[in-house]
């Protein structure tokens, strides 16, 4: 498993706040229900989308195929492997 604790927590908590906590604090009024639905769906869709992008890269099956020039540039600017 190539997951890292920090980003998963950060983004899950972030969207969790938007989708679960925020709906409780929507001001009362005729549009309260709509606003709640909007918040929850925003959080759900955005979180799912982020999660898929993250999980698709957790265990890469292939690596990027690059020209050697690009690789030299990468070696210069991004640094050495850890």
């Amino acid at each position: 498993m190539g997951a890292s604790f920090v980003p998963i927590t950060v983004f899950t908590v972030l969207w969790g706040i938007v989708g679960i906590v925020c709906p409780f604090f929507v001001p009362k009024g005729p549009n309260r229900g709509i606003t709640q639905v909007v918040l929850m769906l925003t959080a759900a869709t955005c979180w799912l989308f982020w999660l898929c992008a993250y999980m698709a890269q957790m265990n890469p099956l292939i690596g990027p195929r690059l020209t050697s020039e690009t690789l030299i540039w990468i070696a210069r600017t991004w640094g050495e492997p850890y």
Binding site: S4, P7, L66
Partner: peptide, 26 residues
């Protein structure tokens, strides 16, 4: 690098940090 035109990075090596890019596609 000098002898090859194209090279593929192998994820099963230290070319990949083993933790993905945190937000979106690398």
């Amino acid at each position: 690098l000098e002898s090859n035109k194209m090279l593929q990075l192998n994820p099963d090596s230290d070319a990949y940090t083993q933790t993905p890019y945190p937000f979106g596609i690398d």
